[in-house]
Write a protein that binds this DNA or RNA. Structure first.
Lengths: 196, 196
DNA sequence: GTACAAACCAAACGATCGTTTGCTTTACCC
DNA sequence: GGGTAAAGCAAACGATCGTTTGGTTTGTAC
C-alpha cells in the first residue's frame, strides 16, 4: 500500500491507467463479484499482488473506476447542454449524451449503471454520493420544464432516467442508435409524436 | 444428482421449498455471484453438498428460482387485468401488479430483475426465453392502446417497463407505494395529469 | 553515477468457492 | 414391520478468492 499522498513524482511507466481501463471493462461486463483481481491484471501481464501497490482493496479500485465513470458522464452531459436555452432541448441533449456515454463503448459509464453500491459495502456511501451528485443535474433540467400543473417532476425524472439506464439490458448495437432511443423517450414524456 | 424424473413419491420432509425461498432471498439481495451455496443452505441448517441432491449446479438452482419468479409476476399481472376492458385501465393495472410483485417482498420477482442471464451462461438462454415470454404480455397491452399516429409502441413499452424495473434501485418502503409510482408512470406516458 | 523512492515481481497466506463421493437416516408403501 | 427409495450427512476435493510479505527492478532527481 502506497502512502496516502504520493509524496514524490510518479513515473512514466506507471500502469495504473491500464489497470483502471481493464477493471472498468470487466466490472461493466461481469459485475463486481463476477470479475476477479486476477482477471483484471491478467490482460496487462501483471501479477495479482502488484495491484495492491495502487489500491488498498478491490473495493477501493471499484470506487476509483466508479468515480471516473460519473465524471465522464457528467462531463459529456454538461458539454451537451452548454449553450442551449430551450428547456426541452436541454433535456433532450442531456439524455442523448447520457445514453451515448452509456451504450457507446463506455466501460466506465456502464460500471456506474451496472454495479450496485451495496456490492462494495466499504465504499457504498461514496458511490451513492457521487451518483446523487450527478443526478442533481437532471433535477434542475426537469425543474426548468414548462409542465402542466399536477405533473410530478420527481416522477418524470425517475421515469426518464430509469428508462434510459435500463436500456443497457436490451440494447443491441445494430438497431436504433442511442441518440434515437433517447429522443423517443423524451418525446414520449413530452407527449409529442416523433419528429423524424 | 437425482434422476431426471423422480420415479416415485416425494416425501413430506422435503426441504426443497426452503432452499428455493432462501436462494430467492439471497440472489435478490446480493446477486448471483454475491450469494454462495453455503450462504443459501446455512439459513436452513443444511450442508452445502446436500443441495446437489436437488440441483445439478448452482446455475440450475438459479434457473428454477428465476422461472418461479417469472411465473409469480405473470400470474399477478394476468389476474390484475382480467375482467378489465379499457386499454389504458388494463395497462395501468398490469403495471401496478408488476411493480407490487417486484417491490413488496417479492424475492422471486426481484431475482428476475436483478440477475442478468449472462451471470449464468449454462442457463442464460432459458432465462432470456422466459423473460421474453412474459414481456410479450406487455406487447399486447401496448398494442391495444389508442395512440396517436407516429408514436412508436415498442419505445413506449420499453420506456415504461424500464422505468418500472429500475425503480428497484431507488425505491424506499416508507415513501410512495408501488401502486402510486406505477400509476404516475402510466399517466406520464399517457400525457395526462395525475388524478389524485 | 549514485541515492532513493516508485513500481512491480515472486511466492505464498488462509479463506472460501462450487462440487463430489460414500455412507446414513428416515419417511412411505405393501 | 420389512423393503425401498427419497433426502440428507460427513468429509473432503481441487480451484480460486482477496490479500500480504519480502525482495527486486527501474526510472528519475541531484
Amino acid at each position: 500500500m502506497p502512502a496516502a499522498r504520493p509524496a514524490r513524482v510518479p513515473r512514466a511507466d506507471n500502469r495504473l491507467p491500464l489497470i483502471l481501463d481493464e477493471a472498468a471493462r470487466l466490472f461493466a461486463a461481469r459485475g463486481f463479484h463476477g470479475a476477479s483481481v486476477r482477471d483484471i491484471v491478467r490482460a496487462i501481464d501483471m501479477l495479482p499482488g502488484s495491484l495492491y501497490y495502487h489500491f488498498a482493496t478491490k473495493e477501493a479500485l471499484l470506487a476509483v473506476v466508479y468515480a471516473e465513470g460519473v465524471r465522464r458522464i457528467s462531463e459529456s452531459v454538461e458539454a451537451a447542454i452548454a449553450g442551449r436555452r430551450d428547456p426541452w432541448e436541454r433535456l433532450e441533449a442531456a439524455c442523448v449524451a447520457h445514453l451515448e456515454s452509456l451504450l457507446n463503448a463506455g466501460d466506465y459509464a456502464q460500471v456506474v449503471i451496472r454495479v450496485r453500491p451495496s456490492d462494495a459495502p466499504s465504499v457504498a456511501g461514496e458511490l451513492v454520493q457521487r451518483r446523487d451528485e450527478y443526478e442533481r443535474l437532471f433535477v434542475e433540467l426537469v425543474q426548468a420544464l414548462p409542465l402542466a400543473r399536477g405533473v410530478d417532476r420527481r416522477s418524470a425524472r425517475l421515469m426518464l432516467l430509469g428508462a434510459l439506464n435500463w436500456s443497457q439490458t436490451w440494447y443491441h448495437p445494430g438497431r436504433d442508435s442511442p441518440r434515437v432511443i433517447a429522443r423517443r423517450f423524451v418525446n414520449l414524456l413530452r407527449g409529442q409524436p416523433d419528429r423524424e
